[in-house]
């Protein structure tokens, strides 16, 4: 008596083996896909133009504010820098008053710059910080307001 059952192929046989690659099913044809792309891009373009206009206006308002305030800042800054030049010159006069033959603003009588037309010359950073303490020099050079 046989109690087991022999494994056999299904009725009608196995399905044929699919050896060819199967691509995904296409939802749209090429023209529709290109149409959708154009539509979405066009809509985004229109939306971006609105957003860009808003951003431009906001930036312009900030530029306006900066430009309007600029003269006030410059007026104060010019006065501050001229006060500093004056202080540096006075300090040099005081420091070198006992040295014979020294003239302020020159190297033993020879001027620093060849300035025939008496233009405005901005002193170099080293000249501005010469008479400061090392801590203040560091602050000035690295633009620290509070130590």
């Amino acid at each position: 008596m046989v109690t087991y059952r022999q494994d056999l192929p299904p009725k009608g046989g196995f399905d044929p083996i699919e050896f060819a690659a199967r691509g995904p099913k296409r939802m749209f044809n090429g023209f529709t896909q290109f149409g959708i792309f154009l539509g979405v891009t066009g809509l985004a373009w229109v939306g971006w133009s609105y957003v860009k206009e808003i951003m431009r206006k906001e930036e312009l308002e900030l530029f306006d504010a900066r430009n309007a305030v600029e003269p006030f800042i410059y007026a104060e800054k010019d006065r501050a820098i001229l006060t500093h030049y004056r202080r540096c010159r006075d300090e040099e006069n005081k420091l070198m008053k006992n040295v014979k033959g020294w003239e302020t603003g020159t190297l033993w009588g020879e001027p620093v710059y060849h300035n025939v037309r008496s233009r405005y010359i901005k002193p170099s950073l080293e000249e501005l910080v010469t008479h400061m303490s090392p801590e203040k020099q560091h602050d000035m050079i690295f633009d620290k307001l509070i130590r």
Binding site: F72, R79, L82, T83, R89, G105, P111, E127
Partner: peptide
């Protein structure tokens, strides 16, 4: 200092005026 004593630099009296001591927020506003 490249400024000699003969060159013109304004004196402290000319340079000292009451300054606008306000913060950036006030200026921006």
């Amino acid at each position: 200092m490249p400024y000699t004593n003969q060159e013109y630099l304004p004196s402290y009296e000319e340079l000292t005026v009451p300054e606008l001591e306000v913060t950036s927020a006030v200026f921006r506003t």
